[in-house]
Computed example of a mutant assay.
Amino acid sequence: MEQLNNAFTLFLSLLVEAIPFLLLGVVLSSVLLIFIDERWLMARMPKHPILGAFAGSCIGFLFPVCECGNVPVARRLIMQGVPIPVAIGFLIAAPTVNPIVIWSTWIAFHDRPEIVVLRVLFTLLIATIIGCIFSTQTDLKPILQPAIALGTIRSAPKVSTGYSLLDGGDFMLGGAGAAPLKMTQELMQPPKRSLRANVNLVLDNVIQELRELGGVLVLGSAVAAAIQTLTPRELIVSLGQGPMLSILVMMLLAGSISICSTVDAFFALSFAATFTSGSLLAFLVFGPMFDLKSIGLMLSIFKPKAIFYLFAIATQLTFLLTLFVNFHVS
């Protein structure tokens, strides 16, 4: 009974710490639906592979979406003819390199600022490298789903679906109640919305994202509390102190738990006393890039072979960088 009480207490504490950042991230990304002119921004993205990948990795500062929202945004970027390094850089980095996530990481690890800095630097580095690698793919048909590849051919810069890049994941991926994606002349220019329509758009997006992310947050907090209280302390310590094993364990946990990047720092904080710095960074860097739900969403853009390459490269780079931290920084 005491273990159950401790688990419930830890569960509630994780939720109390994380919910404000989840709400802030959802509201901010929804408000940006109105104020960001993504077409103007995309037209000014650099064409050079390295600069493009780096610029795409930094777009998260303007589009603070988590790993639930970055996929539909990246999908629209690709279909609007944005260079593939820019889209890949955004896809990999946006869930981490944005002000909400950086702030929440600082709140969780304010006494260990190197965690905050290295999380951002490693994510930017990995996203830029992957974007550059994929820039060598001049023919996108082998890596994109047929419908997306066709859209890149049919989409000139003047063509738009009329929907914002920041529309929610289910909306752009054809989920329940989603509007069909049409490449028609009547949708070439986005409709002008009244103030009331803008407010309704923001509220609808907030509700949708809270519905999508709230359940994941509750599940992730419950799993973290259960692991911390029900798993034998000796086992946790043995897994958390090995320089290599601890990284692999936290990467596996990050991929399976699928917790939102807006609040994953508080999840990682519960392991800070027993796991190495490198393993905590592995969780914070790798989780927003690849987890079960994001892989499922990526299948709407890329063919499985391309996702395998993305996953393999991100896994190796994350492991090597965080292993360096364990041996030379910790």
Rank of each mutant, 00 (worst) to 15 (best):
V86Q: 00
S270G: 09
L140I: 14
A94G: 10
L280Q: 00
A312N: 07
G177D: 10
L144G: 11
R112M: 09
M42S: 05
V97T: 14
V218L: 08
A222T: 07
N98H: 06
A282M: 13
F283Y: 06
T138P: 04
G81N: 04
L284C: 10
L77T: 03
M188I: 13
D37R: 02
G169I: 13
P20Q: 08
G131Y: 10
P99C: 08
S104P: 08
R193Q: 14
D170T: 15
T96R: 06
A74C: 02
F8S: 09
T128A: 09
A149T: 11
V117S: 15
D37F: 01
G177K: 07
R75Q: 08
M298K: 00
C58H: 09
Q185H: 11
T96G: 05
V73T: 14
A147E: 08
V27Q: 00
G177P: 05
V329A: 07
I115L: 10
V202S: 04
M251N: 09
I236D: 11
P190C: 05
M298C: 04
I129Q: 10
I100D: 00
P232W: 07
A225E: 02
N70V: 14
T274W: 15
Y309E: 12
I130E: 07
P142C: 07
V73N: 11
M188D: 11
G151E: 15
S164F: 06
L269M: 15
